[in-house]
Design a binder for these strands. Structure first.
Length: 873
RNA sequence: GGGAGUUUAGCUCAGUUGGUUCAGAGCACCUCGUUUACACCGAGGGGGUCGGGGGUUCGAAUCCCUCAACUCCCACCA
């Protein structure tokens, strides 16, 4: 029997085998079924360009656990996978690849470029989904969606039109965050600000028709070329006399006004501010307020434009270097200091963001935010951990309009059609035909050839925010949507709470009038041992597939989970996966042990009967807490519970208790019950470690193809006897104490010892046979015989092991005195409490009773220690 | 500059409404062990004045004040 199970669990073959089996059996599939309660998760769609990293591993492990648990709970579990087209990231990759082939994007037509992009997508896209299968992800792969699928695409366009018609989308000439590398606008959320070392240049401007100068401080001297005013504080007496005069911009000698505004911080720099309305958000506002001219000295790609007059065509950073000697030459540069400031960089290209005036499409957020904020505030949607509510509230109450147009081709094209001169006349329509119809209502003479569709596409997140709806094609077919929506849980990282979570909630209420999900589980961020974020550039991110090969998917899953309370960052170390692997091996060997037993139809052994009864109580008790932890999303606690339940209680105590002696057999009844209990444990562990549990399940008894733990039922928690657990706890303590004595005295475990215990044995009596077996002792409920002996106390019971010739009386005395000291200290503190009138008056009766009991227990312990000491001395 | 959060054993974290001498778990560590499931193991063991200080209370890891350190989010200071 034993021979066909190796002593080491080999996950590689097992994991592949069961995944294939589940897939082939269609276990992952879900269809609406009005007789079953749905449980839905939509995957946070990875970028089509993405490869699996540790963040995905954690995130998808958790989703898989929730989905598998729901299945065991008898729900119709549906996990929808998919991918995000990731407009800017993908386009960058495609452009790069074309460049490597010697093709420039600018030489291609939109259609040709998109053809290349789709080709790229077909070739490289979706690697990550294949990798997820290795992890065990039980997604309904037939439902795999892509944000640019035909129906999905249509839904994005339709929602754009819907919002436009509701006046919630508008086109505006605004200062936006411009990425000069990707050549597109990006949203506020896509800009990452970091502290960087830079320089503060002090530059003086001559006052027109005077010998006087005014000095300003700037970190961007090249923008001097776009200055259209100098601004001073209206109460700053140092400069007030200059108000109304004009200053000359160095190098280009343009005359600009000197204006007053209390926006200026008198303490900063020189207290004078140069105003460049085209290149700074605040300056832009000042410009509008004071009616200043706006000179845009930069081209889209970050080089200086004709308007700069000098250094035309130079990159903005080269220009900054080159303008320094030029300023020196005209005597305008006073000094340069080191300075630390915040610089905004593009999330995608990492290039420094340029505030730029341009015409873009915006979504009015305020009206959308209101119901979305209320939903989270009221608990209609719950965050786990709850603390992210604060972050969410803060953002939602200070929400700004969302710039959704991107000057890219890969994405959902804005359905606006322009006609006539310039881009001021347009209609928004689903198709060119419809657009023409609408346009003709304005100008009947228009022909199709007069219409020009907007070249831009929408922000990726403008499609992702529809994810929970559009994966079900919900705008066009209500069958699936009505059943699966709202989805149950969303599992994601806190880093995309604004990008995605908040916006999905808005879209949910706007388009479906319902929350998109009930619960949001925020995972932590995976860091390396030193606490750094994992990143490609640091090279500190392990390859998840290699990890799986080394530790098994089950091992990695458990490892990730054990150290990951929701929302806490995880300092990742391979060693935590080792723990998972070891655990799988432990389970495997428990299986081997059980399967190796010779089974006989014979009366149930009393040891087995008691052990089994205890185990059942013990499992039931743990199950109550496991169920509670599941409902609180404390999955790491669930994992820990099962780990200890299986390893310590089932393997170390129960199996050791019932294990037949060498050559002996086990009774049929206990054997069957043991298998049943292990099946129960495997069912409970299955969501966390799906593969080993399935393998064990099928090895425990003959089963057919559909009798899988995958389809099992989550065991129902039944009541348990606390007393049984307590008295087994006493038994464990007694066993440990005896083992400890053996260890200290160097006694062989094979030598049976006598253990005397006078008085009441009620607190362990049920398990005395187990104690005798596991500690290899003869328990004697009798007075302790005269002579040297080692002793210990469990509860209020005293135990003694006569050890002729092995006892060092003085050491024993010292040990007992220490114990006595401790007990007396304890009693003193308790009696102090009981003597305290205020305690007696204020403390609840049960607390007082507990103290009294402690007192009594301590007294009896002290008495027996003293007696013991007197015999020794 | 504003807001939130964290601080308990070497590491990662539990500790419910203040009440057992309550300071706990896992890992790591130390000692012993070739016992016929498993050395990816077993048995035993050491380790923290609960960030500092003050206060409330009969009683504080838990409540209040204060200081310190760290993390994250938001914000237009050139």
């Amino acid at each position: 029997m034993m021979s066909d199970l190796s002593s080491k669990y080999d996950p590689a073959e097992v994991e592949g085998k069961w995944y294939q089996h589940w897939m082939n059996s269609g276990f992952f599939k879900s269809q609406p079924d009005s007789n079953k309660e749905p449980f839905t998760i939509v995957i946070p769609p990875p970028n089509v360009t993405g490869v699996l990293h540790m963040g995905h591993m954690l995130n998808n492990t958790i989703q898989d656990i929730l989905i598998r648990k729901a299945r065991l709970d008898g729900k119709n579990a549906c996990w929808v996978p998919g991918m995000d087209h990731a407009s800017i990231a993908t386009e960058a990759k495609v452009v790069k690849r074309l460049r490597e082939k010697g093709i420039k994007k600018s030489d291609l037509s939109r259609e040709d470029f998109l053809a290349h992009a789709w080709e790229w997508k077909e070739e490289f896209g979706g690697v990550i989904l294949e990798q997820l299968k290795k992890l065990g992800a039980s997604c309904d792969w037939d439902r795999t969606r892509f944000t640019m699928d035909e129906k999905y695409y249509e839904s994005v366009i339709d929602t754009f039109i819907h919002l436009y018609e509701k006046d919630l989308i508008y086109r505006g000439y605004r200062m936006v965050n411009w990425d000069p590398e990707a050549l597109t606008a990006v949203s506020d959320e896509e800009v990452i600000y970091t502290e960087e070392q830079s320089k503060l240049y002090h530059v003086r401007y001559q006052i027109e028709d005077s010998d006087e100068f005014v000095t300003i401080a700037t970190t961007r001297p090249e923008t001097i070329l776009g200055d259209t005013a100098i601004c001073i504080h209206p109460k700053d007496e140092r400069y007030l006399h200059l108000h109304g005069k004009r200053a000359l911009v160095p190098i280009v000698n343009r005359s600009i006004p000197i204006i007053l505004d209390d926006y200026v911080d008198r303490e900063f720099g020189t207290g004078c501010l140069k105003v460049t309305p085209a290149h700074d958000v605040n300056d832009h506002e000042l410009g509008q307020k004071h009616g200043l001219e706006s000179i845009d000295i930069l081209n889209a790609n970050g080089t200086l434009s004709e308007a700069a007059e000098v250094l035309i065509g130079e990159d903005r950073f080269d220009a900054r270097k080159k303008i320094k000697p030029m300023l020196e030459e005209v005597g305008a540069l006073i000094k340069v200091e080191d300075y630390q400031n915040k610089v905004g960089r593009s999330e995608r290209t990492n290039s420094i963001i340029e505030p730029r005036l341009s015409k873009q499409w915006f979504v009015k957020m305020q009206p959308l935010a209101e119901p979305a904020l209320a939903a989270v505030e009221s608990g209609d949607i719950r965050f786990h951990p709850n603390k992210f509510k604060n972050t969410y509230r803060h953002w939602m109450t200070n929400i700004k309009d969302w710039c959704i147009s991107r000057q890219l081709w890969w994405g959902h094209r804005i359905p606006a059609f322009y006609f006539g001169e310039g881009n001021d006349h347009f209609v928004v329509a689903k198709s060119a035909e419809e657009a023409l119809k609408k346009a003709r209502e304005i100008d009947p003479s228009l022909a199709m050839s007069d219409l020009r569709q907007d070249e831009d596409v929408m922000d990726t997140w403008f499609s992702s925010w529809l994810w929970p709806i559009s994966v079900f094609d919900g705008f066009y077919n209500r069958d699936d949507l009505n059943y699966y929506y709202p989805t149950s849980d969303l599992v994601t990282g806190p880093d995309i709470i604004f990008f995605w979570v908040a916006r999905m909630i808005m879209a949910g209420y706007e388009f479906e009038k319902k929350r998109p999900f009930e619960n949001v589980y925020f995972t932590g961020i995976i860091r390396d041992k030193q606490g750094r974020k994992m990143s490609k550039s640091l090279g500190n991110s392990p390859d998840p597939i290699e990890l799986i090969e080394k530790y098994s998917a089950d091992g990695v899953r458990l490892g990730l989970l054990m150290t990951a309370p929701a929302g806490n960052d995880i300092p990742f170390d391979d060693a935590i996966c080792e723990q998972g692997r070891n655990f799988a091996n432990k389970i495997w060997n428990a299986l081997r042990l059980i399967k190796s037993w010779k089974v006989e139809d014979k009366p149930v052994d009393v040891v087995n009967e008691k052990a089994l009864s205890w185990l059942q109580h013990r499992i039931n008790k743990e199950q109550v807490s496991i169920d509670a932890n599941y409902s609180k999303y404390r999955l790491n606690d669930v994992a820990m519970s099962l780990y200890k339940l299986i390893w310590d209680e089932f393997c170390s105590w129960y199996l050791e208790a019932i294990k037949p002696a060498y050559g002996e057999s086990i009774d049929q009844q206990t054997y069957d019950a043991t298998i049943f209990q292990l099946e129960k444990l495997m069912t409970m562990l299955h969501p966390i470690m799906p593969f080993i549990t399935e393998e064990v399940w099928h090895n425990l008894r003959e089963r057919n193809n559909v009798d899988c733990v995958f389809l099992a039922e989550w065991p129902e928690a039944t009541s348990y006897e606390e007393l049984s657990i307590l008295s087994f706890g006493n038994a464990k303590q007694i066993i440990s104490e005896v083992r400890s004595i053996r260890a200290q005295k160097n006694l062989s475990p094979r030598e049976t010892l006598d253990v005397y215990q006078p008085g009441d044995e009620g607190a362990y009596k049920d398990f005395s046979t187990i104690i005798q077996k596991l500690a290899n002792v003869n328990l004697k409920n009798a007075e302790i015989p005269e002579g040297p002996n080692a002793s210990f106390i469990v509860g209020t019971m005293e135990f003694s092991v006569p050890l002729e010739g092995l006892i060092d009386a003085s050491a024993e005395v010292a040990k007992l005195e220490e114990e006595l000291n401790y007990q007396e200290g304890f009693m003193k503190s308790v009696s102090k409490k009981l003597a305290n009138e205020r305690f007696m008056n204020n403390a609840p009766a049960q607390v007082v009773d507990a103290e009294r009991k402690k007192m009594a227990d301590a007294e009896s312990r002290i008495a027996s220690i003293k007696e013991k000491l007197s015999t020794l001395k």
